[in-house]
Nucleic acid binder design. Structure first.
Lengths: 226, 226
DNA sequence: CACATTGCGAGAGCAGTGCTCTTGTTTTAC
DNA sequence: GTAAAACAAGAGCACTGCTCTCGCAATGTG
């Protein structure tokens, strides 16, 4: 029948999926291992056969969330005409925004304040890098397409050096101005989403979607994608 | 001697100050009312005479943090030549950045993911609005000074309507382009700080200060403050 | 096939949490 | 001077993450 190994991965999956459901309902901080165990129909100590600690379960959920967002972003990018750089940028940004609004607790888990004393292990980095990877691939495409970004001040040597890792992560060598503008766009998008989801726009902006669209359009213009 | 009322405010202050110390050390999620009580030298149930619940203590700490940041921002603004709009903008942004790096747990409490089920009561809004207020006063000053912001796309009617509350919060009527650019700058600054503090720049940027300075300088240029 | 090993779920238990209630004492107000 | 209010302490409840031991069942080996 079902071998022990099959049962194990099946049970691991069940526990993680239940945790995912609870995460979406109560949020990261209130996620209880015992409540998950009850929901699965098993005693709490049995969960520790599959996840050594609560943090390990959280890590699995973080990776899952990163991958979900990565899937959404990559799918949105793939669904757009590759030559339509502005369209791809808009699709990418709106994919982030839409996913975050659909999965606010997952977004908070990943882009909100890290849980106390929790240091994301290396297993998360590949999944975490997918959305930034999509950003940087688009930046590279705009470089080869010769898009003209809005003027920026020249970078000092220290500033250039500070951005060396991200520059090295892009296949095509990016100009200073383009690199800076793309990083600023990255800050702006996630700043908007975080401020919105964490309640800091509540008193100032009525229609989040309308404002987000306007910001994204403006970023696309600043990046010379039109 | 010390009247009962005096003792009460004194004890309230002691508890909040101890909570503030613990917050800085262990972060918001690990903040334990019992540990605070032990530190104060009192039994845990006694704390409930002063703060009806853990959330109420957290709210007090949120207000305190907002006010600390507000103090820092307003002080930085006041210490700069009022006519030097670019200098004031830089001072303001760096005050946010510096305070956040000095008080990461407090920043996470205020700008990170909200604690589960917690809705900031109205007592926080005045303190919370101080930093955005400083931003908007500077925006108004740049409007009256006639600063030329980088070109933006025209706003649709829906987008204009979405920003009505923030527009109403500014003494001077702001032009569409200026309002949008200032909001984007707000997103960018807090996006940068959040991404940095929550560990998302770890693999891409070596020198956070150098990068932040460059971003702020560029924002000042985009806002036409030079 | 028989046996030893290993994996597994259940249960008890520990130390900790937020919070409530009662009890005796001290300070205030009338 | 006495009634009322405020207070700190303690016990206790329900909950948490986590550890350990106990039997039972599946597995691999002689």
């Amino acid at each position: 029948m079902t071998s022990r190994a099959e049962n194990r991965i099946e049970q691991t999956r069940t526990i993680q999926a239940t945790g995912r459901r609870h995460l979406a309902e109560v949020g990261p901080a209130a996620l209880s291992l015992r409540a998950i165990a009850r929901d699965v129909g098993v005693v709490s100590s049995a969960v520790y056969r599959y996840f050594p600690s609560r943090d390990d379960l959280l890590t699995a959920l973080i990776v899952e969330s990163y991958d979900e967002l990565g899937d959404a972003v990559e799918a949105a990018d793939a669904a757009t005409d590759p030559a339509d750089l502005a369209g791809r940028f808009r699709a990418l940004c709106h994919a982030i925004h839409d996913w975050a609004r659909t999965n606010p607790h997952e977004y908070a888990l990943v882009y909100g304040s890290p849980v106390p004393g929790y240091a994301a292990p290396d297993t998360t980095v590949t999944s975490a890098g997918r959305v930034t990877g999509a950003f940087l691939r688009l930046a590279a495409a705009s470089e080869t397409a010769g898009a003209t970004v809005a003027a920026t001040r020249p970078l000092t040597e220290a500033e250039r050096a500070a951005l060396e890792p991200v520059r090295a992560a892009v296949a095509v060598p990016l100009s200073d101005v383009r690199l800076l503008r793309w990083l600023m766009a990255w800050h702006t998008v996630f700043g908007h989403v975080s401020l919105e989801l964490f309640g800091h726009m509540h008193r100032g902006v009525l229609d989040y979607d309308a404002h987000f669209s306007q910001v994204v359009d403006q970023l696309a213009a600043d990046l010379g994608l039109d």
